[in-house]
């Protein structure tokens, strides 16, 4: 999936992935897509919850060998 920006949160634990996602999201324009990389399993539950709370759209969440990639569209 093509993203307009990426935040690399590999090696970081809660609350840093969602904190960095929130900060980066502020830089994006409506409709742009943010890619979030993480290896914290907590992101599986946290990212959908963050999107639900902030009204942004979770396009997909992929997992490969414990590495997560989330794609979020700014609403």
């Amino acid at each position: 999936m093509k993203a307009d920006a990426t935040v690399d949160c590999v090696g970081l634990y809660c609350p840093m992935p969602i904190a960095q996602t929130a900060l980066e999201m502020k830089q994006l324009k409506q409709g742009q897509v943010l890619e979030v990389l993480s290896d914290d399993e907590g992101i599986k539950e946290d990212m959908p919850a963050w999107c639900k709370a902030t009204g942004n759209e979770l396009l997909s969440m992929e997992e490969k060998n414990g590495q997560y990639k989330a794609y979020i569209r700014k609403k």
Partner: peptide, 12 residues
């Protein structure tokens, strides 16, 4: 602070 930053990240 973990809670505070998490909540602020969620737009609260």
């Amino acid at each position: 602070f973990n809670l505070a930053i998490g909540a602020a990240s969620m737009g609260m």
